[in-house]
């Protein structure tokens, strides 16, 4: 099984298209970092416009922690599309090339093959996230320095102490890994149904775009549907950056405002992963392989 995972991972990283995602993320992050380094003050002035009429805010607001948060907000919506490129190609790609039947002649069960392919796509997903974390967090910390994190939400402001931020990013990235693995699992499931790569890739992207739009639309009629969409739960990583306050309105260091929400979302995503992968294996085991 381990050698099968190694082979599948090797196959992923031999394909040039795998590196499209890494290149896209690198160029986007470098571009945003450049923009914020050169003209971050204007961006901040614009964001602080309302607040600065009553408050005088001092300190290194545009620091690495805030820059990383801004980038994660922008990128974690689009990274799923890059993951779909690989995950939705795992089975359909083999079918398209005509190697699937040949692969199944090897002394492995179909379940083992499916699991190894899913684990390989998960490894790709995690490496992509690690790369994202390295560029967005560590490089930003190096370029912009570190300080307290001043986070402007739509109806309130959160000030996190510098020594209370890093662990939140670890939590956020672990959560993001779970969210991205859900996308990989969806792409993987859809790849079972097609004989070419384009169909499942586009289908995965379409599902994500459709669900994301539904999740973000603030129209009451859709509110009943939102909790059932996995895309609604994918953005719960942001909850790591909200802090509890006591009765005297003092923020409690090391606390999370809505930990149950994070745990609930994580559980829902985990259930999605299990269901998607199980369904993919179930369909594949029943499938008549002709290509």
């Amino acid at each position: 099984m381990f050698s099968l995972i190694q082979i599948e991972t090797y196959k992923i990283f031999r394909r040039p298209r795998t590196y499209i995602a890494f290149a896209a993320i690198t160029s986007l992050i470098v571009l945003i970092q450049f923009g914020l380094k050169v003209d971050g003050k204007s961006y901040l002035d614009f964001m602080l416009n309302d607040l600065s009429t009553t408050l005088q805010i001092e300190g290194n607001i545009m620091n690495g922690y805030l820059v990383c948060y801004v980038m994660l907000q922008l990128l974690l919506v689009h990274v799923p599309l890059l993951i779909a490129l690989i995950a939705a190609d795992m089975i359909s790609g083999e079918a398209n090339m005509g190697t699937l039947r040949l692969l199944l002649t090897k002394p492995f069960s179909r379940t083992q093959l499916m699991l190894s392919k899913f684990i390989a796509s998960t490894i790709y997903t995690l490496l992509l996230l690690i790369w994202l974390a390295f560029l967005a967090l560590f490089v930003s910390m190096w370029i912009f320095g570190t300080d307290d994190m001043f986070l402007m939400k739509s109806s309130y402001v959160v000030l996190l102490k510098e020594n209370d931020v890093f662990w939140r990013y670890i939590g956020a990235f672990v959560f993001a890994a779970l969210a991205m693995t859900t996308v990989a699992a969806l792409g993987f499931l859809l790849s079972v149904f097609a004989e070419n790569s384009i169909g499942p890739i586009v289908a995965t992207m379409s599902v994500i775009i459709f669900f994301t739009i539904l999740s973000t639309l603030n129209i009451p009629i859709f509110n009943t549907v939102k909790p059932y969409l996995f895309t609604t739960h994918m953005i719960s990583w942001k909850e790591f950056f909200d802090i509890q306050v006591n009765d005297a309105n003092e923020a409690i260091n090391g606390s999370i405002q809505n930990l149950p929400k994070i745990l609930q979302s994580a559980a829902i995503l985990l259930i999605h992963i299990v269901v998607f992968v199980w369904a993919a294996i179930w369909v594949f085991r029943k499938k008549d392989i002709l290509s």
Partner: peptide
């Protein structure tokens, strides 16, 4: 005295309903 603080959700990229 403080003014009521509000930023458009499009700016903060918050689309979930997690207001107080």
């Amino acid at each position: 005295n403080t003014k009521n603080y509000k930023l458009p959700k499009g700016l903060t990229l918050e689309f979930d309903d997690n207001e107080k």
